[in-house]
Design a protein around this nucleic acid. Sequence first.
DNA 1: GAGTGGTCTAGACCACTGA
DNA 2: CAGTGGTCTAGACCACTCG
Lengths: 262, 262
Amino acid sequence: MPRMASSTSASSARPAATDPAFGAAPAFSPLYRQIKALLTRSLQGGEWRPGEAIPSEVELAARFKVSQGTVRKAIDALADENLLVRRQGKGTFVATHAEEHVQFRFLRLIPDEGEVGGMARRFIDCRRQRASSDVARALALKAGDAVVQVRRVLSFRGKPVVLDDIWLPGQAFKGLTADRLAEYKGPMYGLFESEFGVRMIRAEEKLRALAADAEAAELLELPAGAPLLSVERLSFTYGDRPVELRRGLYDTTTHHYRNELN
Amino acid sequence: MPRMASSTSASSARPAATDPAFGAAPAFSPLYRQIKALLTRSLQGGEWRPGEAIPSEVELAARFKVSQGTVRKAIDALADENLLVRRQGKGTFVATHAEEHVQFRFLRLIPDEGEVGGMARRFIDCRRQRASSDVARALALKAGDAVVQVRRVLSFRGKPVVLDDIWLPGQAFKGLTADRLAEYKGPMYGLFESEFGVRMIRAEEKLRALAADAEAAELLELPAGAPLLSVERLSFTYGDRPVELRRGLYDTTTHHYRNELN
DNA sequence: GAGTGGTCTAGACCACTGA
DNA sequence: CAGTGGTCTAGACCACTCG
């Protein structure tokens, strides 16, 4: 029955290691949260790579000197956050974008009718440059730091539908080229994961409607001024570190952005 | 140790009440799911009204002849779906839109800068009519059935930002008038809940960009053809029954639609 | 059949609320 | 203080996968 760190019911020693002076929140942290944090650290540190199985529940329970039920709760929480995937009878696995048949976890654009079928990708550009102040702020970089910018078009049945501009921190994405992007089969985030060790965990999007400028209109084969759905996405890895800024322009004449409210 | 209905390990009797002929899915249903279904039925049937407390976990455990841990799991699931709200030390309560300070659970439009502060409502219209085939299909009605249509505008700092057209099944919303809507303080879904016993559980939205037509442009005080974010929402009550169709047109020059991807 | 995750139990104790 | 939800345990048994 280990108690580990807990600001209230500590096994012994002084009452709290946290809040040294001003009495902030009590910050009671149950055991399973601490286990969850430890597991997260191991994921972040690469102890288990995407697609691999993590140790069984009984093993982890032994390692952490905790009951199986407690590690179970920790794993449940991580599974809810899509960091782990449970498979009954087989084990618990680190989530991956590679094999993910739900490659559309992040792309919410759906054809109005018909299947969600694959889009054709075309990479227009991929170059290294200095971050503008906007991009730097979003990615938590200093203005002028190196960034990789990628521009691409997605087409559905030959008609261009999505124009994406993507900014990545140059530091983490050193060898990224248009060729590497074009060669790779499967979702882009799968490449980021296997080649650069950067796994996208969650993202925030800001949507608005705007009129197509000349450049966007040409690339999307639309008249200038056509209404477009602008989707600005900031993606995060472990530890809520922003690692991708993306600005997509969607032609929504035959597609729509689908969202669920719970 | 009651076993209740379970297609595999039934306590006695025949092996399965389900799949009488063709061997479909095994459909094993653990106890806590069955408890969850029973609780949902009680919610749906109005045994406990929005805002009220449901019986304590020990009480429910006794009622269902089940351990506390099992009802706990059922309640957890319902809390995840926002049907119940747990409050430590007080009890478990039926979720409500009325007191919900997060009135913005369904309205995802956020000012680009500044607080999310209140919008002024103005009801333009509220009339009963016959459902068009589109509306009927969405609301699972027959074409020609009675529906209530509401039109309103939301303004932020004096500037109109949202134009909503709302369709509701006439059956369930008999006494709904523009006056009732205007009088009621708080979120619209709070009114639906307390006056008509219709509680919105979840919703699906389809977003697209389009150019403002003359009518929308006038009401939103924009030039005709201005790009607008169109948000088509279908809302559901208990049992996934659709009960509201809403088509909003958002001016996104100073606001944006915020979304989180997990 | 061995090993994995999934369910269920019974009981102990902790944290929070309100009278 | 009693009553509520929240955590943790230990152990039994079930469902699923795969060799």
